[in-house]
């Protein structure tokens, strides 16, 4: 038997210190003070979770480095290192690649939505959220709304850098803004895929690896970097079918003022499809896990 486990009768029920008496009084008062308000609306709950996402960025602004540095490196690398070789001149290649870099910069960010959800799942706070009397998908919708702000940051960095480097698309600022809007809508849809991954995979690292292993090839096998006409036939077919190619074409078209509606439809249709499939799936997995 273990004598350490035995509480002697003399040590139980130590008298509370004066400090804790006071505390008890304050707690009693704090308890009687609340009345249950009407439930938060779905929108208000989702926005509160969006606010939570923003606070995390506020506390650890470094997490935006990923979102900003990678795309900056892409722009500089491709424009100055490969531009001359691929397109004959840096300026020409910059104009070709900018709308595509906008797309990849923002799409890479969507992987973090899955990582964030996976990280949340390993913490107890998610249990508290799930026992609140709120619209049940609001933590998910809210965090994706928060993520949209990150997408906007990534997009802004690219656009500003492009403008500094002399990128002046024909459709001007309205064209750029329209392209950014379409890219963010697409990303919102795509991020549901990664939240689903985030809920089925075992660690944030696994989500990161799987996420980037999906998104890397898909962006490289698109028309971001090169004109698909220059590719072998099989690859060309794949690249042309890739929804990311359509998104890139839509982004280029909007910036240049000659967008083809087919590209817009495929890009936004894909986003809607992802949302229709993966949002309910995410929600189901989230409620169950």
């Amino acid at each position: 038997m273990n004598p350490d486990g035995i509480g002697t009768t003399t040590t139980t029920g130590a008298p509370p210190a004066a400090g804790s008496k006071l505390e008890a009084e304050a707690i009693r008062k704090a308890l009687s003070a609340t009345e249950r308000p009407p439930r938060a609306s779905a929108a208000s709950a989702a926005l509160s979770f969006g606010w939570r996402g923003m606070l995390k960025v506020k506390h650890v602004p470094e997490q935006l480095l990923d979102v900003t540095i990678t795309p900056v490196m892409f722009v500089l690398l491709f424009t100055y290192l490969f531009g001359g070789a691929i397109a004959g001149s840096t300026g020409e290649y910059r104009d070709y690649i900018m709308p595509g870099v906008l797309v990849i910069a923002v799409l890479f960010t969507t992987v973090y939505s899955g990582i964030a959800i996976n990280t949340d799942l390993t913490k107890g706070v998610i249990d508290r959220f799930r026992t609140l009397p709120i619209w049940s998908p609001s933590p998910l919708v809210g965090s994706l709304l928060g993520d949209c702000v990150r997408y906007l940051v990534a997009a802004t960095v690219i656009v500003v850098l492009g403008l500094i480097l002399g990128f002046r698309p024909d459709a001007g600022l309205p064209g750029i803004l329209a392209a950014v809007a379409v890219v963010i809508l697409f990303s919102f849809g795509l991020s549901w895929v990664f939240t689903t991954m985030g809920l089925v995979m075992r660690s944030p690292n696994a989500v990161m690896n799987a996420g980037f292993m999906t998104i890397f090839p898909l962006t490289f096998l698109s028309n971001v970097y090169v004109d698909p006409d220059t590719l072998p036939a099989g690859l060309e077919a794949f690249v042309n079918a890739n929804p990311i190619s359509h998104l890139v074409s839509a982004s280029r078209g909007l910036m240049e003022g000659n967008v083809e509606s087919e590209n817009l439809i495929v890009a936004l249709g894909t986003a809607a499809l992802f949302t229709a499939i993966f949002a309910p799936l995410t929600n189901r997995l989230y409620r169950r896990s």
Binding site: R52, K56, H59, V60, K123, G124, V125, D127, R128, T131
Partner: peptide, 12 residues
Amino acid sequence: LTGQLASVDEDL
């Protein structure tokens, strides 16, 4: 519910 794991957000 106050769960066994800390059910507050550590990053806030």
